[in-house]
């Protein structure tokens, strides 16, 4: 009996010490991880509004709207990682002087070939895309991972909402997004998630907006 207690005690001590060390390391690294993530998002948000020449400086105002979307199909962006069910989170780009809404940014996310692809999108008030940035993905290196190339992301510039189609060969159609070779799924994921979320954005800003 004592022998078995001893076995359990040894394991308990080892596990306890390990838990203590991990708790300590976690308390040091967790704030940095959160801060990194926030900084990345803020930077991406600024990037996707670049090139739009407003006559004034602007701020980002966070908006959260509940939408009638079945839970589970929700947009898993959120700064907090929790499942909020059916809210759509976006940022209004508001002019500092006039207080007018100049555009919107939001993060679109959809699961692609081997990961959830998160894309930051900036649009103007007509819901025309200014720029997109793929900020998080772990698709196949050399294939899907090329969605972070500037050339690919630039294809979405000035595209209008709800009208993007993926093609596999170069085409003259204005709304076409040329698929990445060998990564049609990734390309389609990004295009579809943008289409869907732009539609949502248009809906919520038109009826519940300013």
């Amino acid at each position: 009996m004592m022998y078995y207690l001893k076995l359990a005690l040894v394991l308990l001590i080892i596990a306890g010490v390990a838990a203590g060390i991990l708790a300590f390391v976690n308390s040091k690294t967790a704030p940095i991880i959160v801060a990194n993530k926030l900084a990345n998002e803020i930077e991406a948000r600024k990037k996707v509004m670049e090139g739009l020449n407003f006559s004034e400086d602007f701020d980002f105002v966070k908006k959260e709207v509940s939408i009638d979307k079945p839970a589970g199909k929700c947009n898993p962006l959120k700064i907090k990682e929790e499942k909020t069910g059916s809210t759509f989170l976006y940022y209004e780009v508001v002019g500092k002087d006039t207080g007018k809404v100049l555009g919107y940014t939001f993060m679109s996310a959809k699961s692609g070939y081997s990961s959830i692809v998160k894309t930051m999108v900036g649009v103007d008030t007509t819901y025309t895309i200014n720029k997109i940035r793929v900020i998080s993905q772990s698709e196949t290196p050399g294939l899907g991972a090329k969605c972070q190339d500037e050339d690919f992301m630039a294809q979405f510039d000035k595209k209008n909402y709800d009208a993007m189609k993926v093609t596999k060969s170069k085409s003259e159609i204005e709304t076409a997004i040329l698929s990445i070779t060998g990564a049609t799924i990734t390309t389609r994921t990004i295009t579809e998630s943008l289409n869907a979320d732009l539609k949502t954005l248009a809906k919520v800003t038109a009826k519940g907006g300013e």
């Binding site: 976690n26 690294t29 990194n36």
Partner: peptide, 11 residues
């Protein structure tokens, strides 16, 4: 530990 440190310093 490696996982957490990497996540914080080489994201």
């Amino acid at each position: 530990i490696v996982d957490m440190v990497m996540h914080a310093y080489i994201p």
